[in-house]
Nucleic acid binder design. Structure first.
Length: 301
DNA sequence: CGGTTTTGACCAGCGC
DNA sequence: GCGCTGGTCAAAACCG
């Protein structure tokens, strides 16, 4: 991020969070390791902003992370973004969301196309296959998890999805639904499940990156808010015009995170641009309580 | 009739 | 090796 961009962004963020949403910026960012083996740690908003893409090494140290294994602590590891009624924003790794499925492990583009050919290409050489799978897993698509306080299971996010599976989740009375973007060759998937810890919230996990714009049929506000220009140009001087913190993420996405964040944020944003009580938090597998400063969590009486 | 949803089966990874 | 679990497939059902 350039200094110019930083100033724009920081001013923007300050306006949003301090003035409109009364958030303590120092609590906004959470940085964690790539695989969640390490306890979460928090860094200040400004620290995070000042940390350029090539400073993740020092970031690790600052946040008590270990650059262990072969994982490179890249921006892509910080992709999860959540906004909680303008109260909470956090960044977490994609990491722990299951390392089980090889399908989910590989790059999505490969997945979606290869799955259909999987059977014919089946090789008897299990060893090499396993090695290949491990390689694929290293390159798995970043994921973004959101928690949305809503009674609706299937949230509108501006994209068209086709459900391709539903599974019961261990320890949860609520099933998990699997969706794929219906746009041709778009590798994006999402999983939707209701949190068993708080049934009033829905956990949505996005995986992959849309390779297309929002469907032209996208209606109303979501489309307007998600104009491609917002992703492609530096943040304009919008101080005073921005209302929702979502917009901040939309704008910061291409600069401070990978484009995945933009996609995820756009999805989050489009879910319900007018929602008054949405509660987005970062989550992997619903482990919210560990991921957001406790005072930000709403505790039911 | 084409697209979507449902749902049982299948597969791979992981822990024991 | 076996069982458990998560993720995906694919045929059938459903729907506009």
């Amino acid at each position: 991020m350039s200094d110019h961009e930083f100033r724009d962004f920081y001013y923007h963020a300050s306006t949003i969070f301090n003035n409109d949403y009364h958030v303590e910026a120092a609590d906004l960012f959470r940085v964690s390791s790539a695989d969640d083996q390490y306890p979460p740690s928090y860094m200040s908003f400004t620290d995070c902003l000042h940390s350029s893409m090539d400073q993740y090494g020092s970031l690790e140290k600052a946040s008590g992370l270990s650059p262990s294994s072969s994982e490179v602590f890249s921006p892509a590891k910080h992709e999860h973004v959540g906004v909680n009624s303008g109260e909470v924003m956090a960044i977490t790794p994609n990491s722990s969301i299951s390392s089980s499925s090889s399908e989910a492990a590989g790059t999505c583009e490969e997945d979606s196309e290869n799955n259909k050919n999987k059977q014919p290409e089946e090789s008897p050489k299990k060893g090499s296959k396993t090695a290949k799978k491990k390689d694929e897993r290293k390159q798995k698509e970043p994921r973004f998890a959101f928690v949305t306080k809503t009674e609706v299971d299937q949230l509108e996010d501006g994209y068209r999805w086709r459900k391709y599976g539903q599974k019961a989740v261990k320890n949860s009375p609520f099933p998990r639904s699997y969706y794929r973007c219906t746009t041709q060759k778009c590798p994006v998937k999402k999983r939707v499940e209701r949190s068993y810890q708080d049934p009033s919230t829905v956990i949505t996990t996005y995986e992959g990156q849309h390779n297309h714009l929002l469907p032209t049929s996208l209606r109303g506000n979501a489309a307007a808010l998600l104009q491609p220009s917002m992703f492609l140009s530096p943040p304009p001087q919008l101080a005073g015009t921005t209302t929702f913190p979502h917009e901040l993420f939309v704008q910061m996405a291409p600069h401070d995170m990978n484009s995945q964040a933009g996609a995820a944020v756009s999805s989050m944003l489009a879910e319900n641009p007018f929602q008054q009580h949405y509660q987005h938090q970062v989550s992997d597998n619903g482990l919210l309580q560990d991921m957001v400063p406790s005072r930000f969590l709403k505790h039911e009486p």
